[in-house]
Structures are given as C-alpha cells and as structure tokens.
Write a protein that binds this DNA or RNA. Structure first.
Lengths: 195, 195, 195, 195
DNA sequence: AATGAATGAGATTTCATTCAT
DNA sequence: GATGAATGAAATCTCATTCAT
C-alpha cells in the first residue's frame, strides 16, 4: 500500500514534470493528476524537490544494478556500451516522459545538499563511462584519448538524442529513432575511438 | 546610450543566471548587480524571459554570421566543423558564465510563443550541422549516416563538454580543457564518420 | 484502562507542549512520544485544544480541592497563602514542564467557548486570592488595599517566578529556587500588606 | 515615506495581534487592516516573526532610553521605580493593545536566533530591576533580599496587572486601573522591601 | 529614461482531524 | 478501542511586473 502510493506519485510526477517542466509542475497539479490530495504527497516526500530526486534515484539504481550485472560477464568495451545504451533507450522508449526529465531537468541547487542525487546521476554516469574507456584503452580495444572528455561528450550526445527522440510527435517515429539510435551511436563512437 | 544599458543588462543577467539558474535569478538581483533599478530592466525587455531569449539571440546571431562568413570560403567539412567549434569554445573560454547558460538554461515553455529563440538555438544549430554533414556525405568526405541523429549527438556532446569545462574550479583548468576540446572532439567525431 | 490512556496523553502532552510550545506541539509528535497513534488521541479528546484545557482542568481541580481542605482549618491569611504557594511550588518542582505550561501557554481564543478552562484558571485563582485578601483585611490581618489588583499582581509574580525557576538549566538550581521561593514571596507580599 | 509604511504596519500589527493572538493574526489580515497588500509587509519585514520582534524592539528601546535619562537624575530607588512604572502604565493606557502584546505574546522559539529581541525584553527588564534593587540594598533603602527573584516577581506582577487592566471592557475603567496601579504597586512592593 | 515601492496571484508546505480497516 | 493514511483548508512568503513620480 505504502509503496503503491509512492510509486503512483513518482509516475504521475514524471508525466507532469515532463509536460510542464519541474518549475511549472505544481504540487497541486501533480496531486490532481494522481487523484490524491496535496497533503498525501508530503506523506511520502519531504518536498517537491525530493520527488525529482527520487525519480533520478530510481533510474540511477536501475542503471547501477544493470552495470554490475553486465560487469560480471567480461564483455568487450563495445559490447558493454552497446548493452548500456540499448538498455537506456529501451527504458526511454517505454516511458518517453522519463527520458525528457533525465535529459533536461537539472535544476541549479541553491543550498548545499539539494539535488545531490541528480548530481550523482549527472556526474556518476560519465565517470563510469570514463572508467570503461580507460579499461578499453588499457586492453588495446580503443586508441588512447582524454577519457573524461570523451565520456562527457558521449553522455551529452546520448542525452541530446533522447531529447530529440522524445520530441518527435508520433509515437512510431519516437520508437523508430530510439530503436536505431543505440546502434548508430555505438558505431559512431566506436569508429571514432578505433586504434 | 540605449544600447549600452541593454548590453549592461544582458551581461549582468548572464552572470547572475549562470550563478543561480534562470528561475532563481530574480529581476531584483539582476538590477542590483547591474547597479540599476528593476524598472529600468523593463524599459529594455518585455519580461524576464525576454532577457534569456535575448542572450540566446545574440549568440545565435554571432554564430550565424560566422557561419555565413566561413561558408563562402569553400572549406572542407572538417575544416568547417573545426572552425565552428574553435569559435564556440573560444567564446565560452572568454565568458564561461555564458557557456553555462547556453548549455543548461532551456526552460520548458508553457504558452506558445515563449522561448522561441531558445528553441531556434537548440534546434537550429543541430539542423545546420546536419546540413553540413549531408554535404560532406555528398562530397564523399564522410560516410553516409543518419545526419540528424549524428548532428544532434555532436551538439549534445559539445554542450556537455562546455558544462564539464566551466564546472572546473580553476580558471586555468577551464581554459586548458576548452582549448584542447575542439581538436579532440573534431578528431573523435571525424574519425567516427570516416569512410 | 480508559483513564490510563487519557492520563498517558496528558502527561506526554505536558512534556511536548512545554518543550515546543502549544502551537508547535503537533498531535503527531505527542502521539509518537506517547507511543500511540494520532487517532487514539481523538478517542480521548475532542481536539488538540481540549488537551491543553484538560491539563489546566486537572491542575485547577487539584488546587480547588486543596483550598477547600485548608479552608476548613481556620488558618490565618498568611498561613493560607503560605500553604497554597508551597503546594504550588512543590507541584512545579516535581514536574517543571507543567509549571512552564501553567505560566506560559495562554492561547488567545478565537471562537467563544474555546479555552474556557484556561480562563477559569487565569481568572479564578486571582479571584480566589482576592477573596482571601478581603477576608484578611476584614479580620485586620492586613491593611486595606485594592484586593483585585494586589491579587492579580501576586498571581502574576508567582507565575513569573515559576518560569524563572523552570528556566534554570540545572535541576538542582531549579529545585533550590522553587523551595525558597514560597517563603521569600510570602514574606515579601505579607510585609507589603502589613498594617 | 519608508518609515511611514513600516510604522503603519507596526501599528496595525499591534491591533491585530492583540485581538487575535500572534498565531491567529495572519499576514493577510494585517495587510487588509492596514489597507496594503501582503507583499508590502515583506518589503519592510523579513518575516511575520520580525514584526513581533520589531514591536518589542521599539518598546524596549523606549524604555532603555527612559532609564538612561532618569538614571542621571540620582533618584531614590522608590522614585526610580515609581517613574518607570508610571511611564509603562501611561504607554499602555494610550495603547492598550500594545500592553496585551507585551504581557502575553511570548512565543516559544524553535530555531535559535528566533525571537531574540523578545527574550531581551523578557529577561533584560527583570535583570535591570534586579540591578536597581541591589543598589537600593547597598544604599540601605531596602532590606536585603533575593533581588533576582523579587525583580522577577515584580515584573510578572506588573505584566499581570497590565493584562488585568486591558481586559476591562470600558475604556474608563481601563484608564482608572492603570492610573492608580503604579502607585498601588510601588507602595505594595516598597513596603514589602522596607528595612 | 529611471526609479523602486506596491502589488497580489500563486507556490510550497503544515497539520488538526477523520474514518475505513 | 486502536490505527495511521488521507485529507485539504489555510498560512507564509516570493517575485515578476506596474506605474506614479
């Protein structure tokens, strides 16, 4: 029961925030679309910001778990990146609103300790990609490069493609772009890093 | 005189918005840091949003003019991209706050007709890059590819690198990253698109 | 059972209200500290205000009973006042939180019929003291005076001393002040009213 | 102009807070009765609490200035107390609402640094009276006593009398009580402290 | 053209109270 | 009797915008 409500709020917030942006997504609106009252939101979240943080937290955890899983399969760098990207695009494909948020809602924190999970997402993922790249370089799978920079560029490119895809009006086009994007990007990036 | 004030507001707004984010940057704060009064801002801008739009407008114009200039020099695709990127990173290097805004402040519009210039920037530049790519493909300089997608990824990668660079604490590191980023990225992207 | 729960709520509420003030003492907090649920509070009290009223009611009853008892002993005014004060300070000494509430939590009622018991306490006690004073005047034990005014001042003085005492940090100091305060005050007041 | 508005808010807040109590006195209500808008209040005060603090601050300053003035006249303790009380009751007589607030609105602070001025008032005045008493003892004007305790009781007594007076329904009765209270109390207290 | 006090709609958050289980 | 999730009215505070000076 408890988890159902929190989940309901998370899912509704994703829809509303994707549509209106975090700032214009009022708690009243989220509550209304979820069919609950404002007060209920605050039984599950400390603040409006905490909702956004939770949205990122859930996705960050999903990706981290997935990483740990494929990490144990001793794949090549290319295979690893391919799987990560495919997983990511598949998730976005199933929930485009989520993609919009992950790629776009990065509010500037004013007080410290605000939006820490979002920062973990925004910095943690490129850092992880950078580590993979370094390993690939060491194993001779790709040429030496400034791995932080390249990882950052790859992450930013993926986010932009996500926004591009979810911005398509037709669901079909959206799905099509996302389906092919993983391969196209991995090809592009890998050729760019070939020895 | 008129242009001086408007320019003063634009430059101050860049500083304040970069520091606090668009939403937390109040008109009072911008006025205070510019040494003028709120009322004066509204003599030059219709609204707070119009300031952000103007910031993007100025940068969009600068880049469009630059494009038209190098367009007439019949350069190779690689040379063109190299020059575009170098110009962009040089501008950010001289005004990191501006870079933060261009890469991060993309508010979701609620009413139509809001933030149109920002959209022009966010969609126009990838579109232009896509056209360059198509030409490069036609001229046999790069392999065939989904030019819209690749252009989007390139643009997103650049934005992410800009954010990465301006996020460095030391001015030296910032400058260093930006100086080398253009070459590193063009190399990465071009090799990725080689025949 | 029924009385045990009500008593538990009363005692816990005294602690919480003394610490946070009536307004900041939430029903959730009281319930949590009592180890029960909010709903249970409402099985024993009509409202949050009713808890505060009940706290005053209990103390008012205790004092009234005590009065009636010593009333039958035909004591001198001085002895009576001495006993009343000693009894009061002893109670506060045993439960300082209670003292803080009796001396400080006098919420302004908005609707009529709210906090009537608190008013009975705040007005009834000075009135009673005034009657005692009038009797003392009649019996020639003290000089004629504006008994209402003096009774009010005495009551206010006692409340202030209670707050002063319970505000001491160390329990020892608290006890010491309260132990001596009764005599010191009665001496002060009585000399002030001597013929 | 600026001071006029702040003064208007202070005076209106005194009326509204006296009537409803600090907690029930909403900023909306204060603004409405002052004929201004809520926003204006916040141009002059950081928070609702700051209004109450300011009310106490103004009165504290008035009294401190008065003290310093009569301090230089080398009066006897009795004369000093008489003048202090007379001044206080005269002020309350002219603005009964103010008296109610000074004697009653002592909210429990939750965060540190809240309501510091109110505490300065509540603790500073008794402390000052205590100093006067110590001097009187030294000069042989009154008998030795626990000066802190007696000062506290005197202050509390005065506050209670103020509340008693402003609680009278008719303005005449209010004025009458306050006019005679100073003398009656000083007589009472002084006789109580005679050698 | 510049000012900045005033505005007030609107946002977030709290919390006493209810009621189905 | 006990529970505690749900409620939603209400409160504080913010800030883009206006307009008389």
């Amino acid at each position: 029961m408890r988890e159902n409500k929190k989940e309901l709020i998370r899912e509704t917030a994703i829809k509303v925030i994707a549509e209106l942006g975090f700032h214009n997504a009022t708690t009243d609106r989220i509550a209304a679309e979820a069919g609950i009252s404002v007060g209920t939101i605050y039984n599950y979240f400390r603040s409006k910001e905490a909702i956004l943080e939770y949205i990122f937290q859930v996705e960050l955890d999903l990706r981290r778990n997935y990483w740990e899983k494929i990490r144990q399969e001793s794949l090549s760098l290319k295979e690893e990146l391919q799987m990560l990207l495919t997983m990511h695009f598949k998730a976005i494909s199933e929930n485009p609103a989520l993609g919009k948020i992950l790629a776009k809602e990065h509010p500037t924190p004013i007080h410290d300790g605000l939006f820490t999970t979002i920062n973990e997402f925004l910095e943690g993922i490129p850092t992880y990609i950078g580590i993979l790249l370094d390993e690939g370089i060491e194993r001779g799978e790709i040429r030496p490069c400034n791995s932080s920079l390249i990882a950052t560029a790859m992450f930013g490119g993926v986010s932009a493609v996500v926004l591009y895809a979810v911005g398509r009006d037709s669901a079909q086009e959206r799905a099509y772009v996302l389906q092919h994007a993983a391969n196209e990007l991995v090809e592009f990036y890998f050729q760019g890093l070939a020895m």
